[in-house]
């Protein structure tokens, strides 16, 4: 009994919160480092398929993204329901691709330009016709390094 009352009597000192800002700042810097501010709002529904033989794209600045998919419900009244291409933040046609590639290219130093990769983020349910048109345009624009964006598949094929 005496023991307990003794303990209760000794009020525990408050935990010092002086180092809290430092901890928060540490977390803050971590998130600032890993953050990539999303530059474009997706107007299309894009669910990339899954695959196993994947390669990681490391240098983000050397990648440009081409989205192909059906417009999301809120944009269907404007763009219809058939698959469309999105470059940057606007819905485009195949003919806009060379200009889009050029605009990305001029931002990069000359030495790195040969390593530019186009990442095709294509919805799984889109048919190959539009994808083929994009591929042909990329070949004509001499942008030959491409990446079919895909998620990781864990289950086996049938």
């Amino acid at each position: 009994m005496a023991k307990f009352s003794k303990k209760r009597g000794k009020s525990s000192p408050a935990i010092s919160t002086a180092s809290l800002p430092d901890i928060i700042f540490m977390l803050l810097f971590f998130f600032m480092m890993v953050t990539v501010l999303r530059d474009s709002d997706l107007k299309l529904q894009v669910n990339t398929p899954e695959a196993t033989q994947l390669t990681k794209l490391d240098e983000k600045s050397l990648v440009n993204y081409i989205y192909i998919g059906r417009p999301t419900t809120q944009f269907q009244s404007v763009y219809g329901t058939s698959p469309r291409i999105q470059l940057g933040d606007k819905i485009s046609t195949v003919d806009d691709i060379p200009l889009f590639l050029e605009q990305h290219k001029v931002k990069l130093p000359e030495a790195k330009r040969s390593r530019i990769t186009s990442s095709l983020r294509v919805d799984g349910e889109v048919t190959m016709g539009i994808v083929q048109d994009v591929k042909t345009k990329l070949r004509k624009s001499n942008q030959l390094k491409i990446n079919y964006s895909a998620g990781t598949r864990t289950d086996a094929l049938d």
Partner: peptide
């Protein structure tokens, strides 16, 4: 930053198209 962060790793099948 927590809200805006997308730790999106871009993975995919790398292909070299013919000229």
């Amino acid at each position: 930053f927590l809200v805006t962060t997308t730790i999106a790793e871009d993975k995919g099948i790398l292909v070299k198209l013919p000229p």
